[in-house]
Design a protein around this nucleic acid. Structure first.
Lengths: 182, 182
DNA sequence: ACCTGAACACCGTTCAAGT
DNA sequence: ACCTGAACACCGTTCAAGT
């Protein structure tokens, strides 16, 4: 990548992070290009779809969460490990309001720029879930996709301003349905 | 209302129902006016906001659900009554994909055209919940808003195409967290 | 009293023309 | 190789002008 191209890429990503944090997943990409001082076509060259922007924004977060799952798998008791991880996933999603819907859609859409990250995250969560299930600490009739769906639902709830004050209780309620002993 | 105005109103509502069922809550209202063979200003006259369209579309459904809650309150055992009602609310929401987010936002926005309906529905659900709680059949640390939130989350899950196949299990999982005995 | 549609200020996306 | 921005086809919303 030419150095001017790289500079544009970095600048676009920085501005996108700012604008999307401010205005959510449907923020105007035109506005992002404008604020970045870059032509509209340049944005589309670097990020052919909106999902590609999300992917770039979330990549490091995703990687961290996957590593975190592996770490929790050996360092903590199964039920606490699962709970802690779920909290962190919801927190990441909360920092990117509205993106979660694209992530859910990406689960079974291999064309999406978010697909690979979703599959990896889902697998990481599934491992933590399975471990808890094998110790009879989690509902046995659930798989990684169900877990992903519940996290998505919690994240969506956290995106609703009216429900922010009760986000913690809602987390506890839904978490209790996952960790019910078999 | 003049008879021509009434005719336009009915026509707009019929077309809106069709278009929103097809394309979801963000469907183009311009398109609705076009398909209804009516000027754009006419649509805005009858429905000053998008929420006003939703409200008109959902009104009878809301009324039915409120009546249904009252009926279930005397005819069925508390836990089954609550479950049955939740299923029916989710089903209604599912028939209007995307509208649920507006409903959640309307809970604490008295300006919204959906506010009154939401409050009424929330109260109806809260009565069923309270009855189940008093018989120790439902989680005691929950109120009507929490119930509304969980229904909203389930409806949102039902709006995600990738999750439709597991909608029933997800319902069971979340329902189990409501109906846990104290 | 009600309806129409042009006008305005925005989008997303593409692509010829430039450097 | 990369960038620009005009062009196109859409929005939502308002409001003067019509009947």
């Amino acid at each position: 990548m030419r150095s001017d191209a790289k500079k544009n890429y970095e600048q676009l990503l920085a501005v996108a992070r700012e604008v999307i944090t401010e205005q959510g997943a449907n923020a105007s990409l035109r506005d992002v290009a404008r604020r970045a001082g870059v032509g509209l076509g340049t944005l589309y060259r670097h990020f052919p779809t909106r999902e590609a922007v999300f992917e770039a924004l979330l990549r490091t977060g995703f990687d961290d969460l996957t590593a975190r799952a592996t770490e929790l798998e050996t360092s903590t008791v199964p039920d606490e490990a699962l709970l802690t991880w779920l909290r962190e996933v919801v927190a990441l999603a909360h920092r990117h309001s509205g993106v979660i819907a694209s992530m859910v859609a990406a689960i079974d859409d291999p064309e999406s720029a978010l697909h690979a990250s979703c599959v990896t995250m889902k697998a990481a969560g599934a491992r933590l879930l399975k471990r808890a299930q094998s110790k009879k600490l989690a509902r046995p009739d659930m798989d990684g996709v169900d877990l992903f769906a519940l996290v998505a639902a919690l994240s969506w709830l956290g995106d609703q301003p009216a429900l922010v004050p009760r986000a913690e209780r809602l987390f506890d309620i839904i978490a209790s349905s996952i960790l019910k002993k078999s």
